[in-house]
């Protein structure tokens, strides 16, 4: 098994056990962040059924934290707008995933609800169509369960849940996303688009409401229109 990892091109799909181990690492972090969501939402005065409904029906970590903050601040309309702005990126994710969910209609209806940043990253990191489908459903199911188990733990153990940042989990998620992205970033065009998009998002983050900067990363696709004179000019 080990020897095949470095030599074969195109890269073979990792065995399910390796995939489960990778998903498991993120799932543990998601349980912890879910617990912090449950505790924060309870402290903000939300009734338990509402907290559970947010994690099962909305199922989008960033938007849930933002929504709880704005609901607690007495701005329900702002909570809806801010949450939906944050989640608009799921539309292009769905476009890119395509048939990673499967062809049957019930798979699309159910799979769409499981679609998150991490699941998209896990699925798109797989080389073949079958690998993408397997990664989507494994990651989708496991991470959904992890987030909701975490939320319940947070509600039950509210006073004992610490700040997940003390465990460095806020660094774990971006690092995990980058690790999943790296194989596709080895392709020069994708790398230029991604770097340009990330740069745009970072530059506008101080000035725009959350969610919009990430969407503006799509402007990174414009670098494909640029002539590549600088590369070809002899030094």
């Amino acid at each position: 098994m080990r020897t095949a990892e470095r030599t074969a091109t195109p890269e073979p799909a990792p065995p399910t056990r390796a995939l489960l181990r990778d998903i498991g690492a993120i799932a543990i972090a998601i349980v912890a962040v879910g617990a912090s969501f449950g505790a924060v939402a309870l402290a903000a005065g939300l009734p338990v059924p509402a907290i559970v409904a947010l994690s099962t029906l909305l199922y989008a970590g960033g938007a849930q934290f933002v929504a709880v903050g704005l609901i607690a601040a007495g701005s329900p309309v702002a909570a809806v707008f801010a949450g939906l702005l944050l989640n608009a990126r799921h539309l292009p994710f769905g476009l890119a995933l395509g048939d990673a969910l499967g062809r049957r209609w019930w798979r699309r209806l159910l799979g769409s609800h499981l679609l998150t940043d991490e699941v998209t990253a896990f699925a798109l990191a797989q080389p073949g169509r079958a690998g993408r489908r397997r990664a989507f459903w494994l990651a989708g199911t496991i991470l959904f369960v992890a987030w909701n188990v975490g939320t319940l733990l947070g509600v039950l153990l509210a006073s004992r849940v610490g700040d997940p940042n003390r465990l460095g989990l806020d660094a774990a998620f971006p690092a995990g996303l980058l690790a999943l992205l790296l194989p596709s970033l080895r392709e020069p065009e994708t790398r230029r688009v991604a770097l340009a998009g990330a740069a745009v998002a970072l530059l506008v983050t101080p000035f725009l409401p959350a969610g919009l900067p990430v969407l503006l990363a799509l402007t990174g696709l414009a670098v494909l229109l640029l002539p590549r004179r600088t590369r070809e000019r002899p030094c």
């Binding site: 992205l181 065009e189 991604a194 990330a198």
Partner: peptide, 9 residues
């Protein structure tokens, strides 16, 4: 590529 740009951002 669009998805990669969003995830990188």
């Amino acid at each position: 590529m669009a998805a990669a740009a969003l995830l990188a951002a």
